[in-house]
Amino acid sequence: MTNDPMTTRQIEPVIPPRPPGLLRQALDSDMFYSWRNSPVTIVATFTAAALILVALLAPWIAPYNPFNPATLNLMDGFTPPMSEGAFSDNWFLMGADHQGRDVFSTIMYGSRVSLFVGAMATLFAMTLGVGLGLASGYNGGTIDAVIMRIADIQLSFPAILIALLIFGVARGLIPPSQQESMAIWVLIFAIGLSNWAQFARTVRGATMVERQKDYVAAARIMGVHPALILLRHILPNVLGPVLVIGTIGLALAIIEEATLSFLGVGVPPTQPSLGTLIRIGQQYLFSGEWWILFFPAVTLVLLALSVNLLGDWLRDALNPKLR
């Protein structure tokens, strides 16, 4: 055990050269280089960041709180963009919807709901998938076979179908008085549960490779607890691909949420997500109030597209072989 850190430091008290600052390190990295050389990615990053920031800060920066009835005036309904409500002093950048709500503000709050559901669902899928993938890859044998077979089944069903089924089952199980308050969690559960398999597969593969390596074998012989090995040695090595799947998964989850809400099995209309806003807005497609549909739809596409572009770039950047 010559490389025991304690002994090393005692014998050779070196003063290491001042490490470059974290920022410097980041700016010098390959990742940053590839980022800087891809204008599309730069635009995507800023778009995504702006949208996420706006969503996070909605309660503080939105011109109106569309869910505070005191500021609403139903008579302002259908005010066109860039004009003032006929019955109040409210000014509407993107117009008002059928309830007199400021579309610009509902989009801010709506992205918040969409991002929350998307992020939570992805996080849930990630935790579940990484956990099962690690267990599967590390243990092998029967556990591996069972988990992977389930993942196979799950992968062959489209996520939207699984989410719909879970939603249908939940509708039947939850008493009516609880359904609305539970809706958002049911949605997160349903979307999360329909997306874990990709994580599990990738992590399993990487784990199997890592497991064969000497340092893992050494740690095992030393009697380190398997959980610790997984956490300390294997997990960091599989984080790259997990991050890529997670980013693309976030875009997928956002679209999935929108689709479910569009099909009428999503969040309630008084706490709308982008998908709910689109479902409501499409009712006014023929009657000329295009802004109720148009702005939420554009926001959704921008959000999904920018996250997708980031995921695409991340995959290439982390996997130089593909370049």
Binding site: A258, T259, L263, I278, A297, V301, L305, L309
Partner: peptide, 25 residues
């Protein structure tokens, strides 16, 4: 290639609505 990413980011229902609006209506 860019259009293909846009295609992936567009929810199916929006594509459907847009097609109906343009080609049918």
């Amino acid at each position: 290639m860019a259009a293909s990413l846009v295609g992936v980011s567009l929810p199916t229902f929006l594509i459907g609505i847009a097609l109906i609006y343009i080609f049918a209506v």
